[in-house]
């Protein structure tokens, strides 16, 4: 395993721990969740093989599921994000293409691009997650409210961390 592989492994464990020890307890107004671990899949290098991406997403999702006692729930939503990620990256390629060696990060591509990239994917994740958990569209508006508030919360934390690492790299 090369150096970056080890770093990815460490980040994997770190994201799971932060998710289950901190953000699992931190639910705002009883409806806004932060599923920060989605950022791990969003921020993997551009040229990651989609098969590997989905496999990693599955493992990460299952690890989170173990702590949430919801086997398969987080895994299915995250695999969905992993599948659409590379297609979405291809669709929104900025003019002149991506810089080689840079990840799909805010620092490399700017705030506007990063929002266009992450918001739909995080929304897709939250949407499938909450509706799968509710077992259908029975309580649609309440579930939708959960999706939107959680989207704002998760995006806020992801952006905060992006700016944080952005400053450090300067």
């Amino acid at each position: 395993m090369n150096r970056s592989g080890i770093f990815v492994g460490i980040y994997f464990v770190l994201y799971v721990l932060v998710q289950v020890m901190l953000f699992k307890q931190l639910v705002l107004f009883n409806m806004a969740f932060c599923f920060l671990y989605v950022a791990f899949i969003l921020l993997l290098p551009l040229e990651t093989n989609p098969l590997i991406l989905m496999l990693v997403a599955f493992l990460l999702g299952i690890s989170v599921d173990v702590f949430y006692d919801s086997l398969g729930l987080h895994a299915s939503s995250l695999v969905l994000v992993a599948y659409f990620r590379n297609y979405w990256l291809g669709t929104i390629t900025p003019q002149g293409g991506y810089d080689t060696g840079e990840g799909p990060t805010l620092a490399a591509n700017g705030l506007q691009w990063f929002m266009v990239y992450s918001v739909p994917l995080v929304f897709a994740h939250h949407f499938t997650l909450f509706f799968a958990e509710a077992g259908g569209f029975g309580i649609f508006w309440f579930t939708m409210q959960k999706v939107m508030t959680s989207l704002i919360f998760t995006m806020f934390v992801i952006l905060f961390l992006q700016y944080f690492s952005f400053d450090r790299s300067r």
Binding site: M54, L55, F58, G61, S70, L71, G72, L73, A75, S76, V79, L80, Y83, A132
Partner: peptide
């Protein structure tokens, strides 16, 4: 993708 999702759905 289909395989993984089907597996997740089965688990769920």
């Amino acid at each position: 993708f289909l395989l993984l999702e089907a597996f997740c759905a089965w688990l769920l």
